[in-house]
């Protein structure tokens, strides 16, 4: 960035020099997913259960953008099954919803990866909300007709929390805050 030849106002197409990012390693991806899984296994209070966001999906979607080879559709399917068991819902319900959410992110990941955190969040949050709608919808179709629509709030909370999460994981990868650099 501070090379004399390049114009300081123009943002380089690819990150260069000192701001080059460290590639996300397998340990980082699996470690953060594990932490997210543990968070979702916490004994939440009975009354606030429907507000608890889906941490695993939030982290998964982040890695879908930056490490699609380590966390792709297969990972989404496997994690979905684990969450199905942990939440005691129909087998395959979350697996399908995770795969669909991952597909949506993977299809547009080339575009997403160059946005800064708030703009990425604006695009990922609808996917997080759509996942909750999908889970309730599939359950409805599978004959579970007593749906508690309050649970859609979890999708909203997940969308709101995705921004700090993306900041956090950006720091973990050494990815520079794009907003700060672009403003300079």
């Amino acid at each position: 960035m501070n090379e004399p030849g390049s114009q300081p106002a123009v943002k380089p197409l690819l990150l260069q020099g000192s701001v080059l990012t460290q590639p996300p390693t397998r340990a980082k991806v699996w470690g953060t997913l594990m932490v997210a899984l543990l968070l979702s296994l916490l004994p939440w209070h009975d009354q606030t259960l429907w507000l608890a966001p889906d941490f695993v999906l939030m982290v998964l979607l982040y890695w879908n953008i930056y490490a699609p080879r380590l966390a792709g559709l297969g990972m989404a399917f496997g994690l979905g099954l684990v969450i199905d068991v942990a939440h005691g819902v129909l087998m395959g319900l979350n697996a399908l919803a995770y795969c669909a959410a991952s597909l949506a992110v993977l299809a547009v990941r080339r575009r997403l990866e160059n946005f800064d955190v708030p703009r990425r969040t604006v695009q990922v949050a609808p996917i997080l909300l759509a996942k909750e709608v999908l889970v309730l919808g599939i359950g409805l179709m599978a004959g579970r007709d007593n749906v508690d629509w309050r649970w859609l709030a979890a999708g909203l909370v997940a969308g709101l929390l995705w921004m700090p999460l993306a900041w956090l994981l950006d720091r973990l990868c050494g990815r520079p805050g794009l907003t700060g650099k672009a403003a300079e």
Partner: peptide, 15 residues
């Protein structure tokens, strides 16, 4: 995605 979706749907039906 189609493969995984088919797999999940069959799991849902089985369950």
């Amino acid at each position: 995605f189609g493969v995984y979706a088919l797999l999940s749907l069959s799991l849902i039906v089985l369950d």
